[in-house]
């Protein structure tokens, strides 16, 4: 473990908690893409299958349980409890256009052709593009509540910090995983325009307005 990965995990945890609190406190999931949350739940489910078979550390197990529980709780809030506030008309990204290439790529580019490894690879590739429906929804509605933009900033920062973690591990532990690195860079790059808007606007107290 290193400071970059720890900060990354904390940022990730923060993002998930911000989102849960936003929906629970405002009793509304307006502006939130249910499709992205579904993809995140799929990501954690397929990645953490080794939760019971492969013990890494108490921290690792604890975080996996928290991420799984929080992602399913978020889905329950969006599609069940507060489904009346779910903005279906703006959450229209065709996720099959993500699932197909992710599935093909995970079958072609993986470390080992075993079910567990293919599912892990699938979850890595899926996570890289899982935020697209959310970013698409923000661009469609033209704006996002400030709490939603804080959520996106924390979520985007987490994988950016993981990139620093991979640089650290390459030099200090000669460890690298090209699949995670490639997907992590793509994932972080997708947030770039949002990061720009967040830094230049939201941090100055303005609303996040995307050029419609």
């Amino acid at each position: 473990m290193n400071i970059f990965r720890l900060l990354g995990d904390v940022s990730h945890l923060l993002a998930i908690i911000i989102l849960l609190l936003k929906i629970w406190k405002t009793r509304s999931c307006a502006g939130i893409s249910g499709k992205s949350q579904l993809l995140f739940a799929l990501t954690y489910t397929t990645r953490y299958l080794d939760l019971v078979t492969n013990f890494v550390s108490v921290y690792n197990t604890f975080m996996k349980v928290v991420f799984l529980a929080a992602s399913y709780a978020t889905i329950w809030l969006i599609y069940m409890k507060f489904r009346a506030t779910y903005d279906q008309n703006h959450d229209t990204f065709r996720i099959e256009f993500l699932l197909l290439p992710v599935t093909i790529l995970s079958l072609v580019a993986n470390h080992e052709f075993t079910l567990i490894e293919i599912l892990w690879t699938w979850s890595i590739y899926l996570e890289a593009v899982a935020i697209l429906p959310q970013l698409f929804m923000v661009s469609k509605t033209g704006e996002a509540e400030s709490i939603t933009s804080h959520y996106l900033f924390a979520l985007g920062s987490y994988r950016g910090l993981y990139i620093l973690n991979w640089i650290y591990r390459y030099y200090m532990e000669s460890y690298y995983d090209l699949i995670a690195i490639f997907a992590g860079i793509l994932q972080t790059v997708l947030y770039c325009d949002f990061f720009y808007l967040y830094i230049t606007k939201v941090l100055r107290g303005q609303r996040l307005q995307l050029p419609a």
């Binding site: 990965r5 892990w120 995983d177």
Partner: peptide, 10 residues
Amino acid sequence: RIESATHDEL
């Protein structure tokens, strides 16, 4: 091949 026996990252 990239040696990543077990995935120890989240």
